[in-house]
Nucleic acid binder design. Structure first.
Lengths: 198, 198
DNA sequence: GCTTCTATTGACATTTTTGTAGATAACTCT
DNA sequence: AGAGTTATCTACAAAAATGTCAATAGAAGC
């Protein structure tokens, strides 16, 4: 019998955690928070569930770490893309970036999960990001902080909603899934332009 | 010892189901889908968990019934309020109603839950509602179906986002919780007006 | 009052999920 | 090569969650 037991792999602690978190994220995005079971995460990561516990202590530890990692990703993705200086391009860009962030990689699902679980405390990262945008790009254009904040609140909420239910909503009414996103993007762009030209 | 065992209460099947579903909804709204445990639902309803099973067959049965009931509520609430004939009032109203529906009674949480669980199939009710609005109030104002659909998609998505994370988002950046809702309402109103006057 | 029906329950049984412990093996350093 | 460190595993144990069943007790009809 040449059934050769796959040689056991030993990763660095960081790599092991990373691998496990990726599996967990996959599960969260694909099947929702309910699917975040110890054994399933382990199976997805290709390790035993004891290994998961070794690295995260408990299933809660996994969830906490996952939330933190995803938030970090999300914020980083948004901030990174806050580059262009041409106002028009930027206007276009801010929507794109926001929508991308919340749609791809399950950003909206992350947020929904956090909200549903009531774990909205450790979002200091998000707060910092918002303040960075307000005092950075938007201040440059002479928008007062209050109005800037409002615009951001609306834009983020919209991105959230679109990212979470946009696709299925469109399909529900018999349109291609990207319809919502495109419509929202146009709507947001128009609204922002109007608000800025006042 | 005058500890008198509380007299066992016997409800009609309908009342019993209703009572249990209310407890379940409370749990869902307060602590998220993860908290929808058989025993907790039973405790909230003041009955034994065997009773819950008797009425719903399984925990899945509870979840399914709850989802259906909440969707029914949500759709009814939105459609009911689609009354006023004055365009302006209606414009104001559609936003109000939508936002209310998604914010109060955990409408947004319901939607998020459904989406996260991938149970977006049994939303035929929603589809019907959308079509009713498109062919009713919006057609009266001479908006073509395609554009009407787009507007609805955006409005619903926004309401969803605001209902789900609006409050905590505002608090996160140090504003009163209603800030997001108000800003979004204004934004939506302006956007709709612009779209209609084109 | 008596019977019938069934909502309700406590006690038990099963399955699922999480956590523990000791042994093993992969990698690093000397 | 040899030793030490620890990531990983298997096997077991505990806890949590779901589900079953037979007995009880409200309510309605006779």
């Amino acid at each position: 019998m040449s059934i050769e037991a796959a040689r056991r792999m030993r990763r660095s602690p960081a790599a092991a955690r990373e691998n496990i978190l990726q599996a967990a994220e996959q599960l969260l995005v694909d099947h929702g928070p309910q699917a975040l079971k110890l054994v399933d995460v382990a199976k997805g990561a290709g390790v035993s569930h004891a290994t998961v516990l070794h690295h995260f202590g408990s299933i809660d530890g996994v969830q906490t770490a996952l939330a933190e990692a995803m938030i970090r990703q999300l914020v980083a993705r948004v901030l990174e893309a806050e580059r262009p200086d041409d106002p028009h391009e930027q206007l276009e860009g801010v929507g794109q970036v926001l929508f991308d962030a919340f749609e791809s990689a399950g950003g909206a699902r992350l947020a929904a999960w956090l909200e549903l679980t009531g774990e909205t405390r450790r979002l200091t990262l998000v707060r910092a990001a918002v303040e960075e945008v307000i005092s950075g790009p938007m201040a440059q254009k002479g928008i007062n902080p209050e109005r800037a904040t409002n615009l951001i609140l609306v834009a983020v909420s919209l991105a959230m909603g679109v990212g979470l239910i946009g696709r299925s909503l469109a399909e529900l009414v018999g349109r291609p899934p990207e319809t919502t996103r495109e419509a929202a993007l146009a709507f947001l762009k128009a609204g922002l332009a109007a608000a800025l030209n006042e």
